[in-house]
Design a binder for these strands. Sequence first.
DNA 1: AATTCGGGGAC
DNA 2: GTCCCAGAATT
Length: 355
Amino acid sequence: MAKQNGFFSTRLIAWYLKNKRDLPWRKTKEPYKIWLSEIILQQTRVLQGMPYYISFTSKYPTVHQLAAAKEEEVLKLWQGLGYYSRARNLHFTSKIVANELNGVFPQTYAELKKLKGVGDYTASAIASICFDKPTAVVDGNVYRVLSRVFNVALPINTGKGITYFKGLAQELIDHGQPGTYNQAVMEFGARYCVPQNPDCAHCIFNDKCEAFKKNKVSQLPVKLKTLKTKKRYFNYLVVVSEDGKTLLEQRKGKGIWQNLYQFPLVEASKDISEKQLIGTDGFKGFAETVSVKVITKHNDTPIVHKLSHQHLHTTFWIVETTALGEMGVPVSTVGTYPVPVLVSKFLDGFRLKIE
DNA sequence: AATTCGGGGAC
DNA sequence: GTCCCAGAATT
């Protein structure tokens, strides 16, 4: 027999049943809703994801309605949540399930993982919660709880660490109630064994926790640090035409905000003046298609929009032009397009000025 | 194995 | 400023 780790799941589940939050996705075992909730919650706090779960389940009660929607509509509902590939993959997979799988989700880890946007974590979560399969999840909470209770200092962002924690989690899972166990570890990590200043003195594991015994809780889990962020310089050309229209472009190809909309963009290598802007190739190309009358800088100092790996120093330029005709979209409809938060925040302030 | 992909909250 | 969040896909 291996290590005596039965205490772990036993205490954890007892704690969970007493302390768990009343969350909407805990009222169901429908694979569609569990899948939806797990995609929304990837790298996302419960409080941030909650309103999106409500609006998605309300607008698309089953996978069939989601599959019947247009991608742009899905992106619009996802707007503000970030990591937009999740929304694109969500929609793609909904069409697979609705049209090729007769609306029925796979029941095993291996089959679930074949779905786009469903990785190790999500496949384990759905298999355990919906179908009682003993597949252990490993998310940020699990890394933290296990690294502390068992004093494991392997970095969680290396292959060795990932493999080790996955194996440890799999050893610990309760085969009788795997879904409850998985949710219990995550809830415990999110609500009690928190990153900063956990209340170890009153913890259910304070007689077992190896990190607590050795006073190493604050040093775990170990995570190798990543590189610093890069700066980019965005100049958005906010066209306001004589016929009340503006120009929007959809971002294509690779990079951030794929398939979302934005104003025509001139990217530079530093903050630039109006004179410098007019001299860029990007602006010259733009000026070939529209007749520019007046340019006004909207924000005096660049707005710094922070993403995980880049800081976007952004200037919005109001560009008055002659009539755009069929080229433009009515300014009043801009709010119906999915746009990055950077653009949506600008619109919030800009509408007040022009109306 | 490393990098990329958002946005918000806690400190 | 830093770190983290119910991770996955790509290179």
